[in-house]
Each structure stands twice: as C-alpha cells, then as structure tokens.
C-alpha cells in the first residue's frame, strides 16, 4: 500500500503523470484500502486499470549530437517484451549462431540463460530505468520509459 503510494508520488515528481492522474490513482488506492476486508486481505482491491494506464508504455532512446544529428526512437515496451520472450523459442542451433555472432561483436550475452520470469523482472526494471548522458562535446543521450 505504502509502496504503491510512494510509486505514484514518484511518478508525479518525475512528471510522468499529471496531478489529476495522481489524485485519481491515490483515490483508487484509498478505495482499494477501504474495500480490503482485513489484514489478510490484498493490499489493493480497487480497479487496477488507472494504475495500469499510468505505467510507461514506450521506451525512448534520444540522441542529440553536437553536429546537429538527431536520433529519436520510440519502441513499445510490449514489443521489447515479445522480442525477449521470442528468444526462448529460437531453435538451439540458430541460438548458438546468434550467441557466437554477438560475442564476435563484443556482446557476450547468452540468451539461452534468459528465463521467462527473468524477462518479466527485466521489463519491470526497464520501466523505472533512466539514462542521461551529457558529453563534453555537447552530445546528449537519453534513454527512458514513458
């Protein structure tokens, strides 16, 4: 309950949701708390749709070069999730070749060790991730979810 509340407030502080949305979410939380039967009941029993709607849906990658080159990429998080889940179904022979090719290019990522439960955890972590890089040259790189 307290975690949900602090998460909503952090979303508001980060500017990812408006004050109205935060108010609605907090109301939904209060309703859920009121509806809870007792200590054994679930922490949140209200309508979860506002909370789900407030979750970030896109992964943004923005690169603004000092020379005027810009790259803006917006990828649905659902696409990232589907892509990662697809890796667990790739035939072993193809996966071996993919891993070999990745390691040849300096990325030693073994997708065979990626389990479905890890993917869900990874995606949840991704939602809260934010990367800001400001170089001396004036290049700016931002990676975030919204």
């Amino acid at each position: 309950m307290a975690e949900d509340r602090s998460r909503i407030l952090s979303l508001l502080a980060a500017g990812k949701i408006t004050a109205d949305e935060a108010e609605r979410l907090l109301d939904a939380l209060d309703t859920g708390a009121g509806a809870a039967a007792g200590p054994a009941g679930p922490a949140f029993t209200g309508d979860p749709s506002p909370l789900v709607a407030a979750l970030p849906k896109y992964l943004y990658v923005q690169v603004n070069g000092s020379t005027g080159d810009n790259v803006h990429v917006k990828v649905p998080i659902a696409l990232v999730r589907s892509g990662l889940k697809l890796t667990s179904l790739i035939p072993p022979l193809a996966m071996d070749q993919i891993n070999k090719s990745l390691s040849e290019h300096g990325m030693s990522v073994d997708f065979t060790n990626l389990k479905p439960e890890d993917i869900d955890e990874l995606i949840e972590g991704l939602r809260e991730m934010e990367v800001n890089v400001d170089s001396k040259d004036g290049d700016v790189v931002r990676v975030y979810c919204a």
């Binding site: 849906k57 020379t67 790259v71 803006h72 917006k74 649905p76 999730r81 892509g83 179904l89």
Partner: peptide
C-alpha cells in the same frame, strides 16, 4: 527430437509483429 516448438515460435512471431504498432524511428542528419 528435443526441439519441437515451431508452432509456438510462429505464434510468438505473429504477436511480435502485432506489437510493432506505435513504433517510431526518426533519424535526422545533415
């Protein structure tokens, strides 16, 4: 054979294609 999941793979690939809606890539250079 140990691996016999091509049907699931096909279904997941279709799902992956369905999730591409909303993707936006913009590259601007000189």
């Amino acid at each position: 054979r140990r691996y016999c999941r091509y049907t699931v793979l096909l279904a997941r690939m279709c799902a992956l294609f369905g999730e591409t809606r909303g993707m936006d890539i913009r590259i601007n250079s000189e």
